[in-house]
Simulated assay, not measured.
Amino acid sequence: MSLQLQVQGQILTPQGWVYGTLAFDERIQSIAADMSAVDAGSAAYILPGFVDLHVHGAGGKDTMEAGDAVRIIARKHARHGTTSMLATTMTAPLADLELALQGIKPEVDKRSSGGARILGVHLEGPYINPGKLGAQPAFAHTGSLEQVRHLDAIAPIRLITVAPEMDGHLQLVRELTAIGMQVQIGHTLGTYEEGKAALENGATGFTHLYNAMSRLDHRAPGMVGAALAHAQFSEIIPDLLHVHPGAIKAAMRAIPHLYCVTDSTAASGMPDGQYMLGRQVVHKCLGGVRLEDGTLAGSTLTMDQALRNLVSIGLDLEDASKRVSTYAADYLGLNERGRLQAGSYADLVVLDRQLNLIAVYVEGEKIDLTDA
């Protein structure tokens, strides 16, 4: 039995805010309200740990590398409050994807000391539209259930991005849904009608809403229109570079469970300079990451900054917290993560009143924040 720990402050529970004490070991044991006359207005905030379903890298490492890359990425993001994440691949030749997944596999479902829990893989491509690559390399092709099964046997794929307008991909969406995979629509030139059809055939979300998809026009709503009209879940990158705050707010009014991802790259947590994103060279400068032609290529965002960005554009802290933890956990059916309640994993962050991290716990393990 591990030693029981305690933190005290303003605790965000599924029922709302409670000032009191949260006791935990690997899991949360209890949340006890304190009705004494303590000044709760100056207390630290205690929130669910952040859940990031779209992570390419950090700390100079990329998920497409072999070796210890994913472990380093998980440690870097944990120092910014991410307690669980999906290692996200790039569009690449099959041999490169196999190598990447072989590197991810040892970290999946292993309690890695000092890092975020790796929940599995987000396969972002290669089943995307070659006409809407964004920052993806030009290795897109039509997909097959057989190939996805082959990759899933190497490391578990929890989420997969597909362009549904590609030949045979509507059937692929149905097949992937039937075997229990979450399918997102992304890197797509599809029409509103094709997006709606994909949702009706089992797709459940959208990859980095607005980015790398056909735009909304009042006579041609495009894939953005399909998301705003019909989606229950969708990713969005709230670095305030990829999407204007007004567009973020519009999406929040339309999509009930819009959740945040970092789409972070190897440049996250690193100085300006040149880095790799899969097989492509990217450049970090002025807070962004871009290809040589200026195309945005992922981000340098961390989830603690995502939370602060949401609050800065007008969200209250409870709403912002759900969008960086609870909704993403719900999307993957992770009922024991993304919420602070007895029995859930002790994945939590402690923040001061300016929303700076004081402490991070991953399944009860305190993370060393000195290398943030």
Rank of each mutant, 00 (worst) to 15 (best):
Q10W: 02
G16C: 03
G20E: 07
G20S: 06
T21Q: 13
T21E: 12
L22V: 00
A23K: 11
S30V: 01
A33R: 14
D39R: 03
F50S: 06
V51H: 06
L53K: 12
H56D: 04
G57C: 10
G57P: 08
G60R: 09
M64T: 03
A66E: 14
A74S: 14
T82I: 00
T83F: 07
A87N: 12
P93W: 12
L94S: 11
A95D: 15
L99T: 14
L99E: 12
A100F: 10
Q102W: 01
G103E: 02
V108E: 02
D109K: 14
S112N: 15
L119D: 08
K132L: 06
P137C: 07
F139S: 08
A140M: 03
T142N: 13
E146L: 03
V148N: 00
A153Q: 15
P156H: 10
I157Q: 03
I157M: 09
R158N: 10
L159A: 07
T177F: 12
T177P: 06
G180I: 02
Q182V: 12
Q182H: 15
V183M: 05
Q184A: 13
K196G: 03
K196E: 14
T204E: 07
T204F: 01
T207M: 06
L209H: 12
M213F: 01
S214L: 10
A229K: 10
H230L: 13
A231V: 08
Q232K: 12
E235A: 12
L241Q: 13
P245V: 06
G246A: 15
G246S: 15
P256R: 11
P256I: 04
A267N: 07
A267H: 10
D272K: 08
Y275A: 03
Y275G: 01
Y275C: 01
L286I: 00
L286W: 00
V289E: 08
R290P: 00
R290W: 04
G294H: 10
G294E: 11
G294W: 10
T295F: 03
T295Q: 04
A297R: 05
G314H: 02
L317A: 14
D319S: 13
D319C: 06
A320N: 09
V324D: 09
S325G: 00
T326L: 05
T326S: 05
Y327R: 04
A328C: 09
L334C: 02
N335M: 07
E336F: 03
R337K: 15
G343F: 11
L348C: 03
L355K: 05
L355C: 11
N356Q: 15
Y361S: 09
E363S: 14
G364F: 11
E365P: 08
E365S: 12
D368N: 15
D368M: 10
L369F: 04
